[in-house]
Design a protein around this nucleic acid. Structure first.
Lengths: 237, 237
DNA sequence: AATTATTACTTGTATATACAAGTTTTTTAG
DNA sequence: CTAAAAAACTTGTATATACAAGTAATAATT
């Protein structure tokens, strides 16, 4: 079944099930086929199936219950805090992104207070700024920096919506393994007042993150400002 | 070695290694004994050792590197956002907690906008409020609510520092499995102005959380206000 | 018909084995 | 002494097997 993909068997099964959940083939509350059924279906040992399911549990796609089965949750865990959600109504397809600074190669200046390694400094910095709008109203302003290590044609990709981590995972096999984050509440400065169309003194949420990946020594540095008046910064963990 | 504990073997090993890391027997950067060594040391199959190590990886205590070994990180992942850290200097032993409302049994009114199940409603609500001070200056004010299900003598325990989750894990075998959180920046109201000793208009960070546990249907509801002027809300993930 | 006991099915725990892939140390060759 | 090759480690992937523990469906009993 999975022979020619080059990926490990458990990873192929993980991606297949993940895709099926994201495409709605399995819906929230559904039971996945049992471990023995998946084992027979794809000709894998039960341990291999369990390895794939363990990762789906870790990523928040399913929960398991002894005696019952694997229950689909339907949505992935966020990366720390990343996802966003309306405080009032469901967030439809009204999310848009405006690139303030298109992805470009720079030299490193600073990384929001986090320390960067010599490797990262030598590689140079991919830098971009985005303003995100919900229903055409600006809600998030974020700055992202990452080292330019083995990322051919990165600046060619569109960086819209929340696709950065999907792009890194599917195109470069880079996965997020963890990180640290710092949160502040502050008053909007002039730049943010302009971006968010708010008055002086308006409270704004600031989120700084240093994100670890499965590439040793490669981190993603991110700074997000959020106008939480109508929309909250939302996350699952 | 672990026969009489009643716990599964992999869990006993997990707890043992976790304890050793937290007590500083293994320091950050150290290598744990290899899987084969642990296997021989405690008379366990390598799979069982790997099960324990996988959990240590998930909890952020170690990272593994193929060909090298299991490298100790030394600090656990926070529960979503929970830990706190000074923005200027290292946080010494100067953290103290003042119980504003001692743990008491109430009936449920609301749960910070989150929906609670009928089971939880029937069980009643354990409620408490805490003010946390760093160097005798108030920084966090939090309200916690959880259903009173099979928690004998809970209100007898001291709830100081960040011990709630340790208490639940060690005394009641309750572990956090995930959750959702919402973040806002807002201006301090009169109550918070008093608690934090700040002026009107001061920006304050608010964090609402619904935390899932390994007990199906049991959640912890938490609301935290934070004065981030000197200390940031800090978390690892 | 309702209750109880049994059975079948589910995930959880545990062991044993084998080889692949990556890293470090040791040995060997120059 | 240096550099390459080999060996001896490490974790990663994969299979096969067995029984325990929890849940759901079925059969038996009252």
């Amino acid at each position: 079944m999975f022979e020619e993909s080059g990926l490990p068997l458990y990873k192929s099964l993980y991606e297949k099930l993940r895709r099926q959940i994201e495409e709605g083939i399995y819906r929230s509350g559904d039971l996945l086929p049992s471990e023995n059924e998946l084992s027979a279906l794809y000709g894998l040992a039960r341990s291999t199936v369990r390895n794939a399911l363990d990762r789906l549990v870790n990523d928040g796609f399913i929960v398991k219950q002894q005696g019952r089965g694997s229950i689909v949750k339907g949505k992935a865990k966020g990366v720390g805090i990343l996802s966003l959600k309306s405080t009032s109504s469901a967030l439809g397809g009204n999310l848009s992104t405006r690139l303030i600074v298109k992805p470009e190669i720079r030299s490193w200046k600073e990384a929001f207070g986090y320390t960067i390694s010599q490797n990262e400094r030598d590689a140079g910095c991919i830098y971009f700024e985005r303003l995100r709008l919900i229903n055409n109203r600006p809600v998030f302003f974020d700055i992202t920096m990452l080292p330019n290590i083995n990322l051919p044609r990165f600046t060619m990709h569109k960086l819209e919506n929340a696709s950065l981590f999907d792009l890194l995972r599917t195109a470069y096999q880079i996965e997020v393994t963890g990180g640290v984050q710092h949160l502040y509440a502050l008053k909007a400065n002039k730049e943010l007042q302009e971006y968010f169309q708010v008055k002086a003194g308006h409270p704004v949420l600031q989120l700084n993150r240093k994100i670890e990946t499965n590439r040793p020594g490669m981190h993603i540095y991110s700074k997000v400002f959020c106008n939480t008046q109508e929309y909250a910064l939302f996350g699952t963990f």
